[in-house]
């Protein structure tokens, strides 16, 4: 019994060194050398200013920007230090209320007459989803175009340029990165 206790202690210590220290350090070194951009959070720069991460969404409510998914994080939405979903069940009255208020917000501005795409009224799993569906982007084109006094075609062209298809044409779903699209919109104006 005592011998087993000794073997347990020594083996746990040795395996901790191997799997808890050596292994993550080896991975970190490889990651920092080969993929430094990805390993440090895929940070986006405009000039030398850090403007966000390509993988982490940001909150938008101004009509001149595309809006992302509703986010259930607290105390602010898109809180990247405390990821969270809403966890509302499909029959929870709070789910309906949240969708209603979101639809009301969207309809304050010029919108198409078609039904609202579902990902635009439902909270993402992480609260940080950087994407919306292409349907959700298309739904917002009239609002953004009006607010920026741009033609719908010009806005739509940017959406198409920033749209990402399925990976290798097979995996995942088509989508558009909201932060990148909005940065491009701001640049579009800066250039003009």
């Amino acid at each position: 019994m005592l011998k087993q206790l000794r073997s347990s202690l020594v083996l746990l210590a040795a395996l901790t060194l191997l799997t808890g220290i050596v292994y993550p350090i080896v991975v970190t070194v490889i990651a920092q050398v080969v993929f430094p951009h990805q390993a440090n959070g895929s940070i986006l720069h405009v000039g030398d200013k850090i403007v966000g991460s390509a993988l982490i969404g940001q909150p938008f409510s101004n009509p001149k920007y595309f809006w992302g998914r509703p986010s259930a994080t607290t105390p602010i939405s898109y809180n990247a230090a405390a990821s969270s979903g809403s966890n509302y069940g499909p029959l929870n009255p709070a789910l309906k209320k949240a969708a209603e208020s979101r639809i009301a917000m969207l309809r304050k501005y010029p919108t198409p007459n078609s039904p609202v795409p579902v990902d635009l009224v439902t909270a993402s799993a992480s609260g940080l989803d950087p994407h919306t569906s292409l349907a959700a982007a298309e739904y917002q084109v009239p609002r953004v175009a009006t607010a920026r006094k741009m033609s719908e075609e010009a806005v739509r062209e940017l959406v198409v340029r920033y749209a990402e298809g399925r990976q290798f044409g097979l995996m995942g779903e088509p989508r558009v990165n909201v932060l990148r699209l909005n940065l491009a919109l701001d640049q579009f104006h800066a250039v003009k």
């Binding site: 795409p117 009224v121 989803d129």
Partner: peptide, 21 residues
């Protein structure tokens, strides 16, 4: 509430609450 949940080439539709695009 008039929400479009039908799958199309532009969206996966369905129950998107708590899912990532």
């Amino acid at each position: 509430l008039g929400v479009d949940q039908t799958p199309s080439p532009l969206q996966s539709g369905g129950n998107m609450e708590g899912k990532e695009v």
